[in-house]
Each structure stands twice: as C-alpha cells, then as structure tokens.
Design a protein around this nucleic acid. Structure first.
Length: 858
RNA sequence: GCGAAAGUGGCGGAACUGGCAGACGCGCCGGACUUAGGAUCCGGUAGCCGAAAGGCUAUGGGGGUUCAAAUCCCCCCUUUCGCACCA
C-alpha cells in the first residue's frame, strides 16, 4: 500500500515509452491502420490548456485504437514559419530561426510531460529545408500545370511601414502597427488556381458524412456557387468616337454583366459599373470633363476597402453620361458608376433592376432613376412602379416582358437564358465567391518561391535539381522595405538556368497555409529525400481517419488541404479525394469568460497543473468537464475533483493488488456467484460496454469518464460489503485476508483489471503503473481492450415504473424478461396504482416492455 | 439582415430511436473515524406544500401532436457562432 505520487509515476513511464520508442509504427498490411491526427502547432512558445485539450482528445482516441489492435499512426510537428516569429525579430532582434527552435523545444517538453503518445521519430518542422523543399517542388508542379500563375492584384499597403498587410491587419482602414491610413496598391502576386476545383470541392462536401454540418455549411458558403447568365449590353456610341484619332484604342462595343435573375432583365433600367471597371478609363477619355469624372471615381476607389466589402458604406454613384442598350427591351438606359459594385465579383458590372433588387431600388429612389415592375407576386397585391416602397425579390409571374410575359419567373430564367444564348448576346455561367489563392507574402520567415526572373527568358522556374532554394540567414529585421529577401544580394542575384545570363530571384515567400496544406502526407513518410512522400506509403496510411482541431480552421486550412489533396491526386500520388475522413472541432477553454491569451493574462499553463496534480489528473479533468466539441470554462476545483477521483481509484486498486494479483485466479464462474458478486460483475461488463461505445464510434469522452467513476463507486460498495474496505483504506494489512470466497476474488480481479485498462487512454501513466502492480509484465497495449459479455451486462431483475395518466405511481420489481401480459396485470394489481384507478374506468394500458407501464383512466 | 446551433438544479453537465428528468462531478449540508481534518469513508442535496406518508410544480416562454415530449411540429424570446451589398 502506497500513496499515489503522480510525478514519480509519470516520469517513470514517459521515460519507458521514450526508451522503447513505444509509439513508432511502420506499415503492416496484416493489421488495420488508423491515422489519428491533431492539427499541428504554431510554436508560439508555450502551450496553454486550451491548446492541450486538443492533443489529449486525439491521444485518448489513439491509445484506445492501439489497444483495440489497430496499427496507429499518431504523429506531431510544427507549423514553424510565420509572422509572429518575424515580428518578434523586428522587436527584440532575435532571429526567427533561434526563437522558433527554442519554442519548439519548450512545447515539445510540455507535450511529453502530458504523456501524449506521439511517434516523435516522425516530428517535422515546416521551416526546415527538408520540409520546405517539397513546398517548392509542389509549387513547380503546379506551375507546370498552370495551377500556379502570376497576376497583378490589389493589396493593402502601409506607406509608413513600407509593407503589405494582410486583411486582418487592417483595422478600420488603418495599419494595426502604426495607425497610418492603408492604401490600395497593385502588386504582382503568385496565385494558386483553387477555383479550378471549386465545383469538385463543393460537391465533395456532400460526401463528408463524418464532418460537422457547421463546417460543411461554412465551406459551401465560402465557395459561394451561383448559377446565372452573362449578358452583353451594347454601348450607345458617342458621335465623337467615330472621328477618334489614330492613337485612340478601339472603342469597346459593349458591357458584360452577370446576373442570377435574368428573368428580371426587362426591368433593368440602368447599368452600374464598379469604380475599378476597365470601361471607366475609356469613358473618361470621351467625357466632356475627364478630370472631374476621374476625380469622383478616385474618391470611390479610396474609400476603405473593408468597408466597401462589408457594405458598411453609404451607397453612392453618379451618371457617366453614357448609355447602353438593354438587349431585351432595345431601350437606351443610362450607365452609372456606383461605389457598392464589387470589381472582383462577376464582371464588375451589373444590370440594375430596382423593382426586384433592394440595393438597386434604394439607389434608383435616391437618384430618381426609373423603376419598372416585371414580376408580380403570387399573393395578388399588385406592385406599382411609382408606389412600391421596397423591391420585391421573390418569385412570381412575369409581366411586361414581350414573349415571356405570363411565365412563372422560375421558368422564365431558363427560357430567357436560352434566348440570350440563341441570339449570341449572352451565355450561362457559374460564378463562385471563392477566389484564387494569393500566396505571395512580402516577408522573410517563409518558404522562398522557386522562381527566377531573367531579362532575356522572363519568368523561369528553378530546376527541380536545384531545390531547395534555401532561405538565407538575414541578419537584420527592420520591419521596413518590402520583401526582406530583396535586400540580400547573394540571394537575389543569380544566373538564369536557361541562358546563363544574369537573373534575379523571386523575393516573396509563400503563405504559411501552403505548408499546412499537405503536412499530413509528409508524416506518413517524413524522411523521404526523393519525393514529398512515397505514394505507396501514403496509400497505406491515408486518409486521416480522425482529425481534430479548432473551428477557426473550418474554412482556410481545411479547404486548402482538400484542394492540395486533389492536386496530388491529379499528379498520381494519392488515390483518394478527401484527406480527412472524420473531423472533430474541439471547443475552446475559457478562463474568466474569455479565450486564454497571453495579452489578457488569463492563460493556464499545463505545467503548473502537472506540478500540482499530475498529467493524468489534468487529462481526466479536461476530458470529463464537457463534450469535446463544447467550449468550457476552466475551474481549478474541477481539476481537484479529478485528482480526488484518481486517488480514490488508486487506493482501491492498490489496496487489492496483492489479493488479486497472483497467478492462478480463475475467471468468474457466473453460476456460483452471490448476489453482490453478480451485481459487481454486471457493473463491470456494463462499464466496459459504455466506455467502449462512448469512445468509438461516438467520441463522448466525458460520459466515458463518468462511467469509470461509477464503477469505482461500485467497487467501494462491494468491498465494504465484502468486509475488506476498512482494512485496505486503513493500511491494516492483516484484515486484507478476509476475502475468503474465491468467487469474490475472481469478480474483483475482473472488475479491477477492466477498470485499469479502460482508464488507460485517459490516465495512461497511472494505468501502466497499476497494471504492473497487478502483476502483469507486458504493458497495457499488449493486454488489449477488454471485451464485454452482453449477457453478463444484462440485469436479471429490473424496476419498471408504472404511470397512471402519465404520472409515476408505483414501481414493479420484475424479471427482465417479464411479458407484456405479466406487466399489465402486475401493474393493475399494485395497491399504489389502485389508489388512482379506484372508481374510474381503465381506458387503456400501454406497456413498453422492459421500460414502463402507463395506465390510462377515465 | 441571412443562415446554423444551442437554452436542463447553485455550477459543469447526463438522458440510446419519444418511455422514471437531473447519471457523473463540483459546491453545499450532515454523520463516522480522529488530539485535529482542509485527508479519508458513509449519507443527503431541483423547487414548493407537508411532522411524515405523500402530493404538486419543473428542461427559456406560449401553443400543438401523443397513452407518454428535454426529445417531434408551429410561434415567440435569449445566447453563441458563421456569412454579410456576391448582383
């Protein structure tokens, strides 16, 4: 008998696991595989209990699957590139390389102290050339296949910091660091053509049955498919254009718009262009006062980009003075420029139908533009152009629309689309909200993009044999200037592999989401130096069977990974479409009602908790406190409760170790058991069943822990009855020997050993220690997961509540197999029931066998 | 504004497919053991009425379906999350 000393036990077993390389695996065609993965970590320095919760969830699943005979791959690594390290370098002068590896070392220690069963032999860090070389390799493959391309695009630019800012770094139109007004600037950027897979990524969401609906909905919204028609509205030419000088570019003939509501086209009374529309410059040249027009456009363009995107801006516009012809009505309609029309969606131009679009309606009323009703609602209230107070956006009957008049608006969409195509003025298209992914970052701490610019040959990819393009060790970080790499002459200047002439390297680095979009494949084959991974190895392990992480990655990381998986598939390297079969999004841990963060000063450091209560108690508490998906509030008292539970479990198991630990104790013989022994045995098998099913397929870790608590409580009751409790609890060794019946020992042994095995995914150190003390030489994994006997778990006698008119009035103690008729007559004969049925007529008796009887009276 | 999810004791949470609401834990109250207890073990703990037996009321609010509703349907309220001029 000894006290529970978590610190000693935990370091003992952690050392044993490390020495034995206990969690390293290799492909084994004879065993079923299980790939269990938690989202890898950004090495910020310290993991708090919020981060750690995710790793514990994954570890419980991995350990359980291992015990159930699966060949479990459970790796971990570091999303090691990224802005914070670089910003820290700017601030403190510590090189990102130095701080990143120091942070990794610390966090790895934290995870080891938690006893997470990672195959550390497979650890990767994305900032190592051995990893990012394959980012570059993949980028080149994408470049070859025209999935990576260069394009000018608008970015947020801080004139004071001289750098590009991500959208999230622009706060109310100002730079987050210095507060200067952010400008829009055009830059050449590299893009990945994720839109080529838009349709497939959308369709795939229908087959991800083991993902949370919430995430799937978010991805569908993000992709934002809308089917519609592009229609060309011819320009009404200006007289002046006919006599334009020889230097003038040819006058464009029409404006193309995109609409999902072509059924309303007869109500299109004007055209709106975005301020960025290419036609704007052309109109300016022909305008009576070009500078005035351009000045007004510039004012729109200068309006805060995020405000324009989010619609928190007053809708404004002005007339260009030009007109277009509505190709369906043949009428001339004015062309305006409006600040709310987005350049990056559709064609950057829309047909305005004020009667049937609220934004257009407000705009038309504000500026006195024509409103024309072309859909009448089915309700019968007739809409009038002049009196309507809001746009009618629903379906209805088409009116005032030539040969389409009288059609249902839904049918008119098809007919009008056909008409537009037949007349050669439009075509059906599908438009996505999803945009190609801009991956260029004007930053240092990322993967160099493997491209050269040669004066003679132009854009030249780095030959694969020259990979990796190593990130040079830049000495100073000032936070000024565009890409830090542009100032490193040895890096920048090189020779063109095609012509041998002078060339310059691309100095931007990749968005770090590139790194995280395929790391789960690298884990399968982490030291391969010929390929990112061997296809056969990935074919064995992939897809990931269980993936867990925060909801904050519901869109970006998860959609990029699905995109990359399809690229690898098209390269012939993987043979599946989806990388993650099952996804669990774990809830955050709050402290004082807020998300833990260093700046708020409310972080709970797992190391503090481990020092006080041990890793096992922390693990049990975090799993017990709530279902994994839910947000939870951290409480020290709850952790203490879990610590108490482990102590209680320890005492009773350790107390009976000697009695039940010996050899030669047979399995329980059901026929010879006493009532109490049967009850314990039943509880044991019930618990095995509950924990088994709570862990797999459900991942209800909290109720699994509560089932273990119940079994421990039952053990105390049993031992109390068997007369051994006092003895054990009080260390009086002499009375331990009071267990005289061999049957008592057999059921106790079965209960205690099952308990220890079921506990092991949650509290692995304690379980290993107790298992050893119970006299087992092999570890927990070789013991395997306990099996339950449905027959033993079943109650022989059950209590059936009897209701009268839905209220419980009595309880019947009956054999489990009591028939409907028996239950019925027993219920009606019960005196407590009769009190309520006396003097009334029994109309009905509902018997749910094994569950309940309801007597309906009067 | 649109969409989704959720709302259960003092607290975290249970409740399989409609079948005893509140498992398990925290907290609190009582008892035992003790020089002592903040350790441990045992018991109690939704609210109201009642000495008790027992009864009544309760799963955000209001209606409905059903022998039976936390669970299914309708309306409303609140909270959280996501999207937000996407033509």
């Amino acid at each position: 008998m000894s006290d529970y000393r978590p610190q000693a036990i935990e370091s003992k077993w952690q050392q044993a696991w490390t020495d034995a390389r206990a969690f390293e695996v290799s492909e084994d065609a004879a065993r079923p595989k299980f790939y269990c993965l938690e989202m890898f970590a950004y090495p910020s320095g310290h993991a708090h209990v919020g981060h750690v919760r995710n790793y514990i969830i994954g570890d419980v699943v991995a350990r359980m699957k291992r015990m159930r005979g699966f060949n479990v791959l459970h790796p971990f690594g570091w999303d090691a590139f990224g802005l914070p390290a670089e910003n820290a370098a700017i601030k403190d002068g510590i090189h990102p390389q130095t701080s990143t590896f120091a942070n990794i070392a610390h966090m790895k220690g934290q995870l080891k102290r938690l006893g997470i069963s990672y195959a550390w032999e497979r650890e990767i860090a994305t900032c190592q050339p051995e990893y990012y070389k394959w980012n570059q390799w993949l980028f080149l493959k994408m470049f070859e296949r025209n999935l990576a391309y260069r394009k000018r695009s608008t970015v947020n630019w801080c004139p004071s910091c001289q750098t590009v800012l991500a959208n999230e770094q622009v706060v109310d139109g100002a730079c987050w660091r210095c507060g200067s007004a952010v400008l829009q600037r055009e830059l050449e950027q590299w893009f990945l053509r994720i839109t080529a897979y838009a349709e497939e990524l959308l369709a795939g969401t229908e087959r991800l049955h083991q993902w949370p609906d919430k995430v799937l909905t978010m991805q569908r919204n993000w992709i934002g498919r809308s089917a519609g028609v592009r229609v060309r509205f011819p320009l009404v030419p200006l007289d002046r254009e006919a006599v334009a000088g020889p230097d003038a570019s040819p006058a464009p003939a029409d404006i193309e718009i995109f609409t999902t509501r072509v059924d309303t086209i007869y109500g299109a009374t004007f055209v709106l262009l975005s301020p960025e529309h290419e036609m704007v410059e052309h109109f300016a040249r022909g305008a009576t006062s070009p500078s005035e027009l351009l000045a007004r456009v510039d004012r729109f363009r200068a309006q805060d980009r995020t405000a324009r995107l989010t619609g928190e801006i007053e809708k404004e516009g002005f007339d260009t003075g030009r007109q277009a012809i509505n190709p369906f009505t043949g009428q001339n309609i004015p062309i305006w420029i409006a600040n709310f029309v987005l350049a990056e969606y559709g064609t950057g131009a829309i047909m305005a139908v004020p009667a049937h679009d609220q934004r257009d309606f407000e705009f038309a009323r504000k500026y006195g533009l024509a409103v024309k009703v072309v859909i009448q609602p089915p309700s019968g209230d007739r809409l009038e152009d002049d009196t309507m107070e809001a746009a009618y956006v629903g379906d209805g009957r088409v009116v005032e629309s030539a040969e389409f008049t009288g059609l249902a608006s839904t049918a008119a969409i098809g007919r009008m689309s056909e008409a537009a195509e037949r007349r050669g003025i439009g075509r059906r298209t599908v438009q996505y909200r999803l945009k190609d992914w801009g991956i260029s970052r004007q930053r240092y701490w990322g993967t160099p993009i493997p491209i050269l610019y040669c004066d003679r040959c132009g854009v030249v990819p780095v030959p694969p044999e020259d990979l990796p393009v190593l990130l040079p060790r830049v000495a100073t970080f000032t936070g000024r200037g565009d890409s830090p790499l542009a100032h490193v002459a040895e890096f920048l200047n090189t020779t063109c592999p095609r012509c041998g002439g002078a060339a310059q390297r691309e100095t931007d680095t990749m968005d770090t989401f590139f790194d995280s979009s395929w790391y789960f494949y690298r884990f399968c084959d982490p030291r391969n130096d010929e390929l990112p991974f061997h296809p056969a190895t990935v074919a064995y392990w992939a897809p990931v069977d269980f993936y867990s992480g925060g909801v904050e990655h519901a869109i970006l990381h998860l959609i990029y990974s699905r995109f990359f998986t399809r690229v690898f598939r098209d390269l012939g390297m993987v043979h599946h479409d989806e990388p993650f079969a099952r996804l669990l999004t774990q809830g955050m841990v709050l402290k004082a009602g807020a998300v833990m963060s260093k700046s708020k000063g409310n972080v709970v450091d797992p190391d503090d908790m481990i020092n006080r209560y041990g890793a096992d108690a922390l693990r049990v508490y975090v799993m017990f406190v709530a279902p994994p998906e839910k947000e939870v509030e951290w409480t020290d008292a709850g952790l203490e409760g879990s610590f108490r539970f482990l102590n209680r479990l320890w005492r009773i198991v350790d107390g009976v170790c000697e009695t039940i630990g010996g050899d030669g104790i047979p399995a329980p013989d059901q026929e010879r058991l006493s009532g109490a022994e049967r009850a314990l045995r039943r509880k044991t098998h019930e618990t095995i069943r509950r924990v088994t099913l709570d862990l797999d397929p459900r991942v209800h870790l909290n109720t699994a822990v509560s089932a273990l608590m119940e079994l421990v409580n039952e053990l105390y009751v049993f031992c109390d009855g068997a007369g051994c409790l006092r003895a054990m609890v009080r260390t009086d060794a002499e009375s331990v020997g009071t267990l005289e019946r061999i049957e008592t020992v057999t059921v106790l042994k079965e209960a205690v050993e099952s308990l220890v095995l079921l506990l092991s995914p949650f509290a692995p150190h304690m379980a290993e220690e107790l298992w050893q003390r119970l006299g087992h030489a092999g570890g927990i994994v070789s013991a395997g997961w306990p099996a339950f006997d449905e027959h033993v778990a079943r109650h022989e006698e059950i209590v059936v509540p009897v209701q009268v008119n839905g209220r419980v009035r009595a309880r019947l103690r009956v054999p489990a197999e009591a028939s409907e008729g028996e239950l019925r007559s027993l219920a009606l004969a019960d005196p407590a029931v009769q009190r309520f049925t006396q003097g009334r007529t029994v109309k009905n008796v509902v018997v749910a066998r094994g569950k309940l009887v309801n007597v309906v009276v009067q």
